[in-house]
Computed example of a mutant assay.
Amino acid sequence: MADRLEFRSKLSSIQELAAGQGNRLTVEEIEKFFEEDSLSREQTELVCDYLLSQKVSVIGYKKQPGKIIEAEEEVADLDSEEQDYLAEYMQGIEGMKSGNAKEARIAYYLPLVVDTALQMHQKEVFIGDMVQEGNISLMAALGRCEAGADDEDIVMEEVRAGIRAFIESQTETKRQDKKMVDQVAELDETIRHMSEDMGRKVSVDEVAQQLGMTEAQIEAILNLAGEEVKKAQEDK
């Protein structure tokens, strides 16, 4: 337990490190941070996956096949709303190309961000949100480069890392939402069956005992479901 708590503490610490760097870390920085722990490659990948789910861009890391399907491997078709968004967005970029040097520099990269977002697109994530997240990473990357001294490969790797982190955070949110929906459905069914069997309303502690959960967990789920169950002491 002590080792587990210590590792959780280190995860919190590395998130603080990332926050101080604009939610951005390299694989090398992660490996150095956990150097004393002698993590295996698989453990390092799990740390990188966790950081991605917390919306931290991990430069130089690509999720391995077999965990969550890599977005680049299965490009989703755009719906009509996404197509309209991109058409309008690309028109706006054209107007920037004739601007000053700073605008022209950004305008050069913006279509590359769109291409990258399209390559990584998943149907569960709106393409416009992916483009905007890519643009945030783009501006951060360009801000670290001197004007006219960009390394396009490095800049676009940061864009990909930013979009990848956004996709993972969205995926994790959807996982948690589905888990909660499933819990609400299970709880609702359990309460219904117990009430029918007992011929009365059941208490929170009775439901908690039946499902092997704490009363606090049951009440949290009930609040989301808008249900009410009387406490045992109220039935006495």
Rank of each mutant, 00 (worst) to 15 (best):
K230Q: 15
E234R: 06
R24K: 14
A18N: 11
G226Q: 10
E74A: 12
G128V: 03
E206H: 02
F33K: 06
A18I: 07
K32I: 09
E186P: 02
P65A: 05
L52C: 06
A141F: 03
L110Y: 13
K179N: 10
M139Q: 15
A19L: 11
E186H: 11
V27W: 03
I136M: 15
H121S: 02
Q233P: 05
A149Q: 15
D205C: 11
L17Y: 09
A216F: 09
A71D: 08
L78K: 01
D151Q: 11
V75Y: 06
D153P: 02
T190V: 13
M130G: 00
Q132L: 08
T190C: 13
L142D: 04
I154N: 13
K32W: 08
K10T: 01
I68D: 04
S137R: 12
A232E: 15
A147S: 14
V125M: 01
E168M: 14
G134Q: 03
E36W: 00
M156H: 04
L110G: 03
S13D: 15
G20Q: 12
A101P: 12
A208Q: 04
D150R: 02
V75I: 13
S13E: 15
M156A: 02
V56R: 01
T173M: 05
E152H: 08
D177V: 11
V229L: 15
M213I: 03
V47Q: 03
S169N: 11
E88D: 15
E186V: 05
V181G: 03
D77W: 08
A2S: 11
V207F: 03
Q183M: 10
S80A: 10
N100W: 10
S137V: 05
M198S: 14
D177Q: 13
M198L: 14
D188T: 03
G143F: 10
I127M: 01
Q64M: 05
R4T: 13
S57H: 09
T26Y: 05
T190F: 01
Y85I: 01
T214S: 15
V75P: 07
Y85W: 15
A216V: 11
D188I: 00
I127D: 00
A161L: 05
